[in-house]
């Protein structure tokens, strides 16, 4: 009962460049398609936060599982790149493993778990805790690119609302939260305004990660395959979470620290360890947690370690 299993992390070293499979173009997509996607990316970078329609291809991965992110990654990746793929912040969740395998197989590029070693990071639902640099690209997998979708289901109408900057309805929904619950209750996919112009869905990252988007040195690219949209936040661009002056945007906080590395500044996963619902908290970002432990940081080991509560 007292064993604490180390944090879920896969191999720590950069894997050797693997041999590509035969019969497919580099990174699966044909060059013409990549050019089409790159054009969409360039347009997206030129108009931060604007959703650029693109001729999304059918990928050998189900829609909703990262087809947009994969296409964006495939369009920007080169043989010298080092790829990291995370899902829920971790490198070893099945979907992350699957996508990493896909690129190892079709592009033969080096892959890594280490945030600092990656030149491209494809992510679902998190931004790494380690600050990113100008030399990195963060590619988000996006299920619903339209931040106004839940308020207005019609594409024809939401396009007009963006064009005319009619975003009052977005604040109406935040107003309703406060009127009903006394605070803004959106906890993930929290809408942001990019460069003072477009309201944008940050993808379902927890709002905890929203501040990291603001003036991030790395290029942020967003791909929505099923919805056939690409959008971007260029380096050092302002990204502001929507709020009210008297109900400012706030991020999640925990009273606990990570049970493994003791971090008090990272996003925590709640892990239920027994039938009585006993909980422990560990870093969602598996690489960050490992780096800290390697640097000698230790957590209290969780509820079964007998450590301090």
């Amino acid at each position: 009962m007292s064993t604490v299993i180390p944090h879920p992390t896969a191999s720590t070293a950069t894997e050797a460049t693997q041999a590509r499979i035969e019969g497919y173009n580099f990174a699966y997509l044909d060059e013409q398609t990549k050019r089409m996607i790159r054009r969409a990316i360039l347009k997206a970078v030129a108009v931060p936060g604007y959703q650029v329609p693109f001729g999304s291809r059918e990928m050998p991965l189900p829609y909703g599982w990262g087809t947009g992110g994969i296409q964006v990654t495939a369009a920007v990746i080169g043989p010298d790149d080092t790829l990291k793929v995370i899902d829920q912040g971790a490198d070893d969740t099945t979907n992350a493993v699957n996508i990493r395998r896909f690129f190892a197989k079709t592009a033969g590029v080096a892959t890594t778990d280490r945030t600092v070693d990656a030149s491209i990071i494809q992510t679902r639902h998190r931004i790494p805790e380690t600050p990113l640099t100008e030399d990195q690209i963060l590619v988000y997998q996006v299920p619903i690119p339209e931040p106004l979708r839940q308020l207005e289901p019609r594409e024809s109408e939401t396009r007009k609302m963006h064009a005319l900057e009619e975003y009052g309805v977005m604040h109406v929904s935040l107003y309703e939260d406060i009127a009903k619950f006394g605070r803004i209750t959106r906890s993930y996919n929290y809408p942001v305004r990019v460069n003072g112009r477009y309201v944008m869905a940050p993808s379902p990252i927890p709002k905890f990660d929203n501040p990291k988007m603001d003036r991030m040195p790395a290029l942020q690219l967003f791909g929505a395959g099923r919805e056939k949209r690409i959008y971007a936040v260029p380096p050092y661009t302002e990204v502001k979470s929507l709020d009210f002056e008297d109900h400012p945007f706030e991020v999640e906080t925990w009273e606990e620290n990570c049970a493994l590395c003791g971090a008090g500044d990272s996003y925590l996963d709640e892990v239920i360890v027994d039938d009585q619902g006993t909980k422990m908290y560990v870093c969602s970002d598996s690489d960050y947690c490992r780096e800290r432990r390697e640097a000698g940081h230790v957590g209290d080991g969780g509820p079964n370690s007998g450590g301090p509560q």
Partner: peptide, 14 residues
């Protein structure tokens, strides 16, 4: 079916 992928980060936020 993507709903069967892990969503525990968002669920934690909720």
């Amino acid at each position: 079916q993507h709903l069967k992928l892990p969503h525990y980060v968002d669920f934690q936020a909720e």
